[in-house]
Design a protein around this nucleic acid. Structure first.
Lengths: 234, 234
DNA sequence: GTCTATATTCAGATAGAC
DNA sequence: GTCTATCTGAATATAGAC
């Protein structure tokens, strides 16, 4: 039975320079736990949780398969660690920006730019997270606590209520048409995230290749804030 | 080796009333092939393609597990049949409406109502199709031919070009801000489809239960057309 | 067309040496 | 901490009787 069951992923403050004896040739002596997690991220995102194989992860991490269990106990444990990291990239950003003191106009632009920029670098994140949540909705409540982080000091509901008051204030001023914070958030997330989740579908429907996709994203990044603010306008 | 490898799913014009001998008690003598496909749809959508088990499908269809192979050869064959049907519910509708001769305004409203109404009845469809396409993008090209059906006489690209000309005409009239048909289509699909794919996430973020979700959809169905048309307005 | 029984393959997990 | 060797269970698939 393994001894070191993974307590909770993160920057392990462990022993600085481990013995080099027995380490396979050609393998950089980086933190094994980290290497496994990074490989797992790639494989889980590529194949989905159910489709991923521990074997493939071990190969991609260039470690012995048994080590996955040493560090993460089970496939389920590993997949949870991966999901935590993935969700951590997707959720806190928008909440932080929407909770800020910027004008609604600036918040919209920042959200759009934030999402398009980060998802461009992690294009498969939305598909993975959405898929995972569909097949295993409990995962969402598991990470709910993580949503209100030091990064995003407000819990979602509190942040949304505050946003709703601001929207109502601007509506009273005659700037905006009335809209609940809930619909506003969903509209924003839909327009930013969906295109990435639907990338393969869009590619075929629009008949575009990778270059066309990048151009499409460039245009979208520039146009979307105006589109949203125009929709909001009274 | 099975004899009857499934040629192509559909209303099988097969022998009307099969012999009742040997049929398990309590089982309605409906078309077995159809029963399998319906059960498979439910299971694949619930668990994802990789997570689904032939065993579970057989139980849900109340047929002997070996029959799945008799009718559909392999798990892969069955999953393809399921995906075809699912995609057939998701794609042709929007293309048909967008290709129609209605005003842009009416087309937008019809698309919104069409999607919210059909997805309400099949809430897991988007998550399943998007997930499947993410892990197996080739499936999209496999069904590309199906997109231009008798239902939607135009191929996607042709339909979009026509739509683009109409948008340009209305922009020239000063009705709309300029927008490509590509962005227009993605905006529309995002706002209609994403909320269903993200249902579990939204439930937690907004802190709503099933009743709250239905109310949210009611509001959305009513507001979304105006939101979109307002965004489009010059 | 439907069933029982079984072959085969493979994945996740563990024991125990080093 | 890392390795080899192996167990165990499960899942897809097929053979062949009826």
């Amino acid at each position: 039975m393994p001894t070191r069951r993974n307590p909770s992923v993160g920057t392990d403050s462990g022993s600085a320079s481990p013995a080099r004896v027995g380490r396979p040739v050609g393998t950089p002596d980086g933190d094994t736990e980290r290497r496994i997690l990074d490989a797992a991220k790639r494989v889980f995102i590529r194949r989905g949780t159910a489709g991923a194989r521990m074997q493939e992860i071990a190969e991609e991490a260039e470690v012995n398969p048994a080590l996955l269990h040493y560090y993460f106990d089970s496939k389920d444990g590993l997949s949870l660690a991966v999901f935590r990291e993935a969700a951590g990239k997707l959720f806190p950003g928008i909440l932080r920006i929407l909770s800020s003191d910027l004008s609604i106009e600036d918040r919209v632009e920042q959200v759009v730019h934030h999402y398009i920029d980060t998802l461009r670098e992690n294009p498969f994140l939305p598909g993975y997270v959405l898929g995972e949540l569909n097949f295993n909705p409990a995962r969402m409540t598991m990470i709910a606590g993580q949503l209100a982080s030091p990064d995003a000091p407000l819990a979602p509901r509190a942040a949304l209520d505050r946003l709703g008051r601001e929207l109502a204030r601007r509506a009273a001023l005659g700037d905006f048409r009335p809209m609940t914070a809930d619909q506003f958030l969903v509209n924003l997330a839909s327009l930013c995230v969906f295109p990435f989740a639907a990338r393969p579908m869009i590619g075929v429907m629009l008949g575009i290749d990778d270059a066309g996709w990048q151009a499409f994203l460039d245009a979208r990044r520039a146009e979307l804030p105006r589109f949203i603010l125009n929709a909001l306008r009274a």
